[in-house]
């Protein structure tokens, strides 16, 4: 290994193309202000190497309009706060690079959630309501285990399969992309169905299929899904929503007949 190497040509320090002037078309509205009407406002910004929508929106706020409302927390693709509609597609803004977008970038808040202002929506309230309805926690066989004792073993593959579904960050993109959610206000969405699939898989949860049927065996649950699968296409965590919903529907149909 040589002690000095050529800086790779693709490294961000040496961008090949001249910097673009980006135009952000942002949908703005404050529903609590009686004077406010939803409208689009355009902000122009010079693109920078490695610019994400997190960086761009903060630059707009710091230099162009201090009142622009949006949500970021981890800005690392972990927390799911920054779901928004980017050029017509729901996604996480923090890990969207401007270089992957055209010069004109349209930003709108996620539909289906209560609007707080501009790009900020109340996903937290929706998710809490869903969690309460579907009881998205382990209904433990053993309520108060002796914590001094060695833990109950679990098959390593099963733990991995549970984690695969546990990776959901409740960003709300699947609900925003869902046809049923537009028509049925109480539809639990792919996020809710995936959680039921996750707890149904977990041997630490003592609920039976009949009990899960009580939670999702309706048109607001698994039978409301029209299999358009926008959820599957937009999920930032690439959760296997298509197979989980199909699997859960079969299982619930069986539980319903019994």
């Amino acid at each position: 290994m040589s002690d000095t190497a050529q800086v790779p040509a693709t490294a961000p320090a040496a961008p090949a193309a001249p910097l673009r002037k980006l135009r952000f078309h942002v949908l703005r509205h404050d529903p609590r202000d009686p004077q406010s009407l939803p409208h689009t406002e355009v902000f122009e910004l010079e693109e920078a190497a490695g610019m994400t929508l997190f960086i761009a929106l903060n630059e707009i706020r710091e230099s162009l309009d201090a009142s622009l409302a949006f949500d970021f927390v981890c800005r690392a693709g972990i927390c799911g706060s920054c779901g928004m509609v980017v050029n017509g597609r729901p996604g996480l803004a923090c890990r969207t690079l401007t270089k992957d977008l055209p010069v004109d970038i349209t930003l709108a808040p996620l539909p289906a959630f209560e609007l707080i202002a501009d790009l900020s929506v109340n996903t937290g309230k929706w998710m809490r309501g869903m969690s309460e309805r579907l009881e998205t926690w382990v209904h433990a066989v053993e309520q108060d285990p002796d914590l001094r004792r060695i833990e109950a073993p679990m098959d390593p593959e099963l733990a991995e399969r549970i984690y695969e579904l546990d990776r959901c960050v409740e960003c709300g993109c699947c609900v925003a992309a869902c046809g049923t959610a537009r028509m049925r206000e109480d539809f639990v969405g792919a996020v809710g169905l995936n959680k039921i699939a996750r707890f149904a898989l977990d041997p630490r949860d003592n609920r039976t299929d009949a009990e899960f049927y009580e939670l999702v065996g309706t048109d607001d649950g698994v039978f409301g899904c029209m299999t358009l699968l926008g959820c599957h296409d937009v999920c930032p965590k690439n959760l296997p929503l298509q197979t989980q919903i199909a699997f859960l529907r079969r299982r619930m149909a069986r539980a319903g007949m019994e």
Binding site: W137, V138, A140, E142, P145, L147, R148, R149, E151, A152, P153, M154, D155, P156, A159, E160, I162, Y163, D166, F199, D202, R204, D205
Partner: peptide, 19 residues
Amino acid sequence: APKAVRELAAWGVPWSRVR
């Protein structure tokens, strides 16, 4: 700390397991 891991295991955390 070991009690905390075991409590979280009972609460459903899918800890990676020994093979």
